[in-house]
Amino acid sequence: MIRYARRLALGAACLLLVGCSSTTNGETVPGGTRAADPRASGSSEEPTTSGGKADPTARIKGVLSLKYKAGQHVKSPQRVAYDHTPPLGGPHDQLWAPCNGVVYKKAVRTENVVHSLEHGAVWLTYDPKKVKDADLATLVKKVDGQPYSVLSPYPGQPTAVSVQAWGRQVQVDGVDDPRIDQFITATRGNPDLAPEAGARCDEADPEAFSQDNPPPFDPTPPGPDAVPVGGGS
């Protein structure tokens, strides 16, 4: 009885002061309240970029965020074994694809466009079997004539529309998804995301990559000689 009374007294004292610790899912939380997740709705905190600034894509639902080493170049026709479809970073061709509001009607060589991402471009891709006519026109309006923007079909991608910037990607099922515009605004030319933001995005070598007749997309899986995402020179 005396021990029981002592436990009651200690419990009351604990409540009168700052609250006792409790355990939730194996974690001890002061006062019995779990700390709020900074990614939860309504929080003012966001993940930060390498420059210490808030990541503007953190509040866009479904954004994939990865880190890639910059400046890793390959030379055509060398392939890269990218880790995502479409890719959002990694080794790339030494020559970028023109990306100042360019709309490619046919799928183009992936390795060149990834270099454009390094320069700060946003790459909109679509599955040509799912996006046609009026839907395609909606995407064209988002890119045509806009700096650091490029649009091309990407056969076999997992969703109707995918949007890539260096180290960031969001994939959606329709052209009217508001996340497309949100993502473009957050990433296009952003120096906190793209390693070489502001670098050239015009046509540099028409003989190697002509905007009007670009090297074609290769739909076959990369062979054993493909450069891994962690490779390049």
Rank of each mutant, 00 (worst) to 15 (best):
M1S: 11
A5R: 14
A5W: 14
R6W: 11
G11S: 14
L17R: 14
G19K: 12
G19V: 08
C20G: 15
S22T: 12
T23Y: 10
T24R: 15
G26D: 13
G31Y: 02
A36S: 13
D37L: 10
P38F: 01
R39A: 15
G42V: 14
A54W: 00
T57N: 05
A58C: 10
L66I: 02
K69Q: 11
A70F: 07
H73A: 12
S76I: 08
Y82T: 06
P86A: 12
P87L: 05
G89R: 05
H92T: 07
C99K: 05
N100R: 07
N100I: 05
K106A: 11
A107T: 09
R109M: 08
V113E: 04
V114P: 00
L117W: 04
L124N: 08
D127W: 01
K129P: 06
K130Q: 14
A134R: 04
L139H: 10
K141D: 11
K141C: 05
P147Q: 03
V150E: 03
L151A: 05
Y154W: 08
G156W: 11
S162C: 07
A165I: 01
G167A: 10
Q169F: 02
Q169W: 00
D173H: 06
D176S: 08
P178E: 08
N190M: 02
E196Q: 12
A199Y: 09
R200N: 15
E203N: 13
E207F: 12
F209W: 08
D212L: 11
P219F: 06
P224N: 15
